[in-house]
């Protein structure tokens, strides 16, 4: 089944002929659906306090803590919904939730 042009579909630019058969769709496609605008507060990481425990990374429900080399982490603000779990689980309080 063909990959679909998600943006076109989101614009309403499709017909019954152009939609994939029985909605069988090549995955993933939700990377086109940014959830950042759900957020009221955003997490900010104070890298000087980070002990690279990766707890924020393992618990993030939105795969929005990116794990970089050697256990360093950063926030992917495209998908972060601002739930604050990362700040809550951080043992050194290196993550703060600040208003957008």
């Amino acid at each position: 089944m063909a990959e679909v042009d998600v943006k076109k579909i989101a614009r309403g630019d499709f017909t019954w002929r152009s939609l994939p058969l029985a909605a069988m769709i090549k995955v993933p496609t939700s990377l086109e659906y940014k959830t950042s605008d759900w957020r009221i507060e955003k997490p900010e990481i104070d890298q000087s306090k980070c002990i690279k425990c990766l707890l924020c990374w393992i618990y993030c429900p939105d795969m929005s803590i990116k794990r970089l080399d050697e256990g360093r982490v950063e926030v992917d603000y495209d998908f972060c919904k601002g739930c604050g779990i990362c700040a809550e689980v951080c043992p050194t309080k290196a993550i703060k939730m600040v208003e957008e």
Partner: peptide, 28 residues
């Protein structure tokens, strides 16, 4: 925790509530 693979087969952009426990379970 650092042994756990970086790759995610559960992708972001899902519409589960902020702070959803179930999404953590599925991601893990």
């Amino acid at each position: 925790i650092s042994d756990v693979p970086v790759e995610d087969y559960f992708a972001p952009g899902h519409r589960l509530c902020a702070g959803c426990g179930a999404s953590i379970a599925i991601k893990l």
